[in-house]
Amino acid sequence: MSEDQIKSLEKEFEARIARDEKIEPKDWMPEKYRETHIRQMSQHAHSEIVGMLPEGNWITRAPSLRRKVALLAKVQDEAGHGLYLYSATETLGASREELYDQLHTGKAKYSSIFNYPTLTWADMGAIGWLVDGAAIINQVPLCNTSYGPYARAMIRVCKEESFHQRQGFEIMLKLANGTEEQKEMAQDALNRWWWPSLMMLGPTDDKSVHTAQSMKWKLKRKTNDELRQQFIDQTVPQADLIGLTIPDPALKWNEERGSYDFGEIDWDEFWQVVKGHGPMNKERMKARVGAWERGEWVRDAAMAYAEKAQNRKEKQAV
């Protein structure tokens, strides 16, 4: 294809996106578009799978049967999200094995928030309320993103995430209305998860490398700083409502802006965790790689069995 031809294809491609048309797997697309989507969608899938670990940590210790069932269902939803996000990524020509390999070798990233430990039951509430809350703010715009399979997957993901968020808030509400010990547990969880949740919305706009291109492809509709402000403005009144204190002495309503002003985020901590040196990075990867390696003989057996069954079928056909 000549350079002119590619240019004209690219022009038509950008025009389609501008018209809000969906790009489908068999459509022509610029290589950069494909790569960016594989990167973002697989990161998203990895985050779902790694995200199962901190919450999975409390399944055996959930305080009541009702909570245990809800937590199991939630973590199972995350596995389901991982499954259809990997499938959606496969439509761009990247196999699940390849993507796993990138995760296991540290080449691919996942949401840094999951590199923090879940120390008490209240962390299940804080994760649902804050982490899923921040995730929804990130993800709702993706329901209208330009790549069809991703947009469709996100519609389902967002519905379930919003259920998880309410469930998390309800755990916190119950603790906040409970005994002194329960209130302390809830406040402690908020103290530990608040700042990492703000970091989840990404580096500040002046440090974010992908924003401009992502905006054009509708992988992003608002900047990181706008999303972070939206999250804070939405969450502070919820904390007030249940009588918990946001651990930020600089937090203050700004009448003029119609938004909350907030304190300085510790970006050194953010980059430390992103670069692999958070409290749980090594453990999370060990758990993922360990499960994958321990499962190898199982997957081999399933393949061998399927081949044998296929051979038997063919023989019968003859």
């Binding site: 055996t60 069932v69 758990a287």
Partner: peptide, 26 residues
Amino acid sequence: MGELCGHGPSLETDIACTNISLDLFG
């Protein structure tokens, strides 16, 4: 079965084992 959540040999078996656990607790 709940102990296995997130540690299964594949995503599909992981979901199935969690699902069995969920049914049993129900």
